[in-house]
């Protein structure tokens, strides 16, 4: 807990080898997972384990189902009509489709950052503490502390600390996305899902977000969907490659990019299709 509350003092990237990291190796476990939008099968027989406090990247061409899988991890697909699934997903051993599990509680545990930054039309402060407010935190001091901690973790504190009460819509694109990250981690979820978080950003803002991911993985398990192979290579410990709703290959990032076992993977990462 104290580890979460205290932001890292240094912004320098420290990368430890994935194998050295402690925590459960099958923290998120996806087993034979299939998923339909109406009659269309979007995912087929996906099975992969995501270890705790690692960054896992989902890559693949458009329409391969990587976003669908990501959105199933916090059941955001529930909002869509006519969906169906088979197989199971467990987090820390418990199925997310357990009828006794409130989906709201699941989403409080699994935070999400969207492709397009979506700050609420409220002040920066209100945006960051939104997750705490919906939980029912009323104590101003607690909210302020959480706001500062989250903004510091999202490397945004120094830029916005003097205008917390200004509208969040006055920020730049990169700042808005970092605000959304701060918002997502304010209630200290265990898992952070990122759906192409940098696709709408310029290279400098992208760099900042990537730096941030490196720091956040100290505390969170991060699943990131990206179109950018370089990004996946830079930020992730493990990478899954999907093609046409199927899981083609899942291994350490190093292995996927240096020595893929599947020809399709190699073709994709070398830019021959996708």
């Amino acid at each position: 807990m104290s580890q979460i509350m205290n932001p890292p003092s240094s912004s320098r990237i420290k990368v430890r080898p994935a194998a050295e990291r402690e925590g459960r190796k099958d923290y998120i476990s996806i087993r034979d997972f299939g998923f339909w939008y109406g009659e269309k099968k979007a995912l087929d027989a996906i099975s992969l384990d995501i270890p705790e406090r690692q960054v896992v990247a989902f890559i693949g061409p458009s329409g391969c189902g990587k976003s669908t899988l990501l959105r199933n991890l916090n059941r955001m697909n529930d909002l869509v009509d006519g969906i169906r699934h088979e197989g199971d997903i467990t987090i820390n051993g418990r199925s997310i489709y357990d009828p006794g599990l409130e989906v709201i509680s699941l989403r409080r545990r699994v935070g999400m950052v969207f492709q397009k930054s979506n700050p609420f039309p409220k002040s920066i402060f209100e945006n960051v503490v939104y997750a705490l407010r919906v939980v029912g935190v009323r104590d101003r001091a607690v909210l302020e502390e959480a706001c500062e901690t989250s903004l510091r973790k999202a490397a945004l504190w120094d830029e916005v600390k003097d205008r917390l009460n200004d509208s969040a819509l006055g920020l730049s694109g990169g700042q808005m996305q970092r605000l959304c990250i701060a918002r997502a981690i304010a209630n200290r979820p265990e898992i952070l899902l990122m759906d192409e978080p940098c696709s709408a950003l310029d290279p400098i803002a992208t760099g900042k977000i990537e730096e941030l991911i490196h720091e956040l993985k100290e505390q969170f398990t991060i699943v990131i969907v990206t179109h950018s192979m370089q990004q996946a290579a830079r930020v992730s410990d493990r990478t899954a490659f999907f093609y046409l709703g199927k899981q083609i290959e899942y291994d350490t990032t190093e292995k996927i990019f240096m020595n893929p076992s599947q020809a399709q993977t190699e073709a994709y990462i070398s830019g021959r299709f996708g």
Binding site: L79, M112, F114, N118, Y130, A131, R133, V134, N187
Partner: peptide
């Protein structure tokens, strides 16, 4: 925008909290 609704739901807000706030 649906993105705001999704954003709110993804933060663990209920339907009513999303609508109201």
């Amino acid at each position: 925008p649906n993105s705001l609704v999704s954003g709110s739901l993804a933060l663990g807000a209920s339907r009513w909290q999303t609508v109201w706030s």
